[in-house]
């Protein structure tokens, strides 16, 4: 049987990808961030998952505004890297797992989640920056990837509760797949940030710290956070954190916190990283 063994929460700030791609990781602004991710990278290399489900959001790259799916699951063999306006990132193409993805769709729809099936999709920094942070710069990504794109751009995003329940349904779906597979799930985006309007640059470290604590010890408290509270207290784009709740929901009740890192800033963002193993 396939098993979800761990979850990774991480920011996906585009400037981090640009920094790696341009060889600037040693600069004083960036060096502490990459040092902070070293334990997570080492953990990823040790854990050697077969598949990573990456919960992320597209930033007006794969999806324009013609169609706005709330939950879109990538079912393709391969996902090309998007040109977001300055050329595609020079990273390997992302290899999918169509058989498992199709199974997930089937299971999730029967569990009353209306998943949009995507058979062709480019992936942007929301998905590739987390892979870079956890896997470095390999010739090929070390595992297959199933992208799960969540609409957090046009409000309202799905609620934290809905995301958490989706995570639980994903766990059930994975466990009903009859193949020995080690699966990890990424929840990406966040943490506190706002990148629009006169209030841009907002950071709320106490909110972020409490969020990381909650993932580890009291996810039910996080599930109850209202959409408005993310916007008001942690910035308009902090709503991305609901994607971390998909990840947490997929881990089952008991988790062990393996690693945590937090730093301000990367560009306009508070960067957070947490690794939770299912127990």
């Amino acid at each position: 049987m396939a098993r979800i063994v761990a979850g990774i929460g991480t920011s996906h700030t585009p400037a981090i990808g640009a920094c790696v791609d341009n060889g600037k990781t040693g600069e004083p602004y960036w060096a502490p961030l990459f040092k902070g991710y070293e334990p997570a990278k080492a953990w990823m290399a040790r854990t050697r998952p077969d598949v990573a489900i990456v919960v992320y959001n597209d930033h007006v790259n794969a999806f324009d505004f013609k169609i706005i799916p709330t939950f879109a699951l990538g079912c393709a063999e391969e996902f090309p890297i998007a040109d977001e306006g300055w050329g595609p990132r020079p990273v390997p193409p992302v290899k999918g797992y169509p058989e498992l993805a199709a199974h997930l769709v089937q299971s999730l729809v029967l569990d009353e989640f209306d998943i949009t099936i995507v058979n062709e999709m480019q992936v942007d920094h929301g998905l590739t920056v987390p892979l870079t942070l956890l896997c470095g710069t390999p010739q090929a990504w070390p595992c297959r990837v199933i992208p799960l794109a969540v609409n957090v751009i046009q409000y309202p995003a799905p609620t934290g509760h809905r995301c958490y329940m989706l995570g639980r349904a994903i766990r059930k779906a994975v466990e009903s797949w009859n193949e020995e597979l080690k699966v990890v799930i990424f929840g990406t985006g966040g943490m506190s940030h706002q990148i629009q309007g006169p209030r841009a640059g907002l950071i709320n470290t106490p909110f972020d710290t409490a969020f990381l604590d909650g993932l580890s010890r009291d996810p039910e408290r996080l599930v109850a956070i209202e959409p408005l509270e993310y916007l008001r207290d942690a910035g308009a784009e902090a709503i991305e954190l609901v994607m971390w709740l998909v990840m947490r929901g997929a881990l089952g009740e008991r988790v062990e916190e393996i690693h945590r890192f937090y730093r301000v800033p990367a560009s306009s963002t508070a960067v957070g990283n947490i690794i939770l193993e299912s127990r």
Binding site: P14, A15, S192, Q194, I195, Q196, G197, P198, R199, A200, G201, L202, I203, N204, T205, F207, R232, D233, A234, G235, V264, P265, S267, S268, A270
Partner: peptide
């Protein structure tokens, strides 16, 4: 850059905005 655009939205120069972020960002 994104950061330039954000700084214009706040009415700061890009340098002032980067400086604010380096000092922990804007308090809520």
């Amino acid at each position: 850059s994104y950061q330039y655009m954000a700084s214009r939205m706040t009415g700061m120069t890009e340098k002032e905005y980067v400086e604010m972020m380096l000092h922990g960002g804007r308090s809520p």
